[in-house]
Simulated assay, not measured.
Amino acid sequence: MAKNSNRDGRAPTQRMLQVGEKIRRTLSEILQRGDVHDPDLGRMSITVGEVRMSPDLRVATAFVLPLGGKDKELMLDALRRNRHEIRHLVVRGGSQKYAPELRFEIDGTFDQMDATRALLDSKHVKQDLDD
């Protein structure tokens, strides 16, 4: 499945992209300011790489990663534990009529980039490129 595709394989609509980006920015600001009342989240710097919306805009999946990539599971547990408070803060800070359900997943983009870089640096690929 493509990075920005729906479950049915179709590309996201313009509206899905716009709403996802608004929620991403709002969520980033909330986490940066430390608005969530949780000591675990208060100690972390979290990057929100992308927010994907469901076609009906009722579910927002945020792809997140702690700065430095450490304590991923602790971060994920804290976000999931506080999802209702975060949902309330997202709506208060945005212009949506209703709050989508928030889901949190680990952002694997950086790992994929590292794997691609390692593949391109491998001896066999360099040999093919030199030919």
Rank of each mutant, 00 (worst) to 15 (best):
Q18V: 11
L120P: 04
L65F: 03
E73V: 09
H124W: 05
Q14F: 01
S54D: 11
V36C: 06
I30Y: 10
S54T: 15
V48L: 03
R10S: 15
D130V: 06
D35R: 15
L74R: 12
E101L: 08
S28Y: 02
T61L: 03
R87A: 15
L89C: 03
Q14V: 07
R33P: 00
G94M: 03
G108Q: 15
K126N: 05
Q127Y: 05
V59H: 11
N6Y: 04
E85V: 00
R24W: 04
A78D: 06
R15M: 09
D71A: 08
K70A: 11
P12N: 11
D38R: 03
G69T: 09
Q112R: 15
A11D: 12
R24Q: 13
Y98T: 12
K97L: 13
A2G: 14
G94S: 15
L57E: 07
R52W: 06
L74A: 12
H37S: 14
R43A: 14
S54C: 09
L120Q: 08
G34L: 06
T47G: 01
D35L: 12
L67K: 01
E101A: 08
L57N: 05
M1H: 11
D8S: 06
V90C: 14
L67Q: 04
E101Y: 03
T13Q: 08
F63V: 00
R43L: 11
K22F: 08
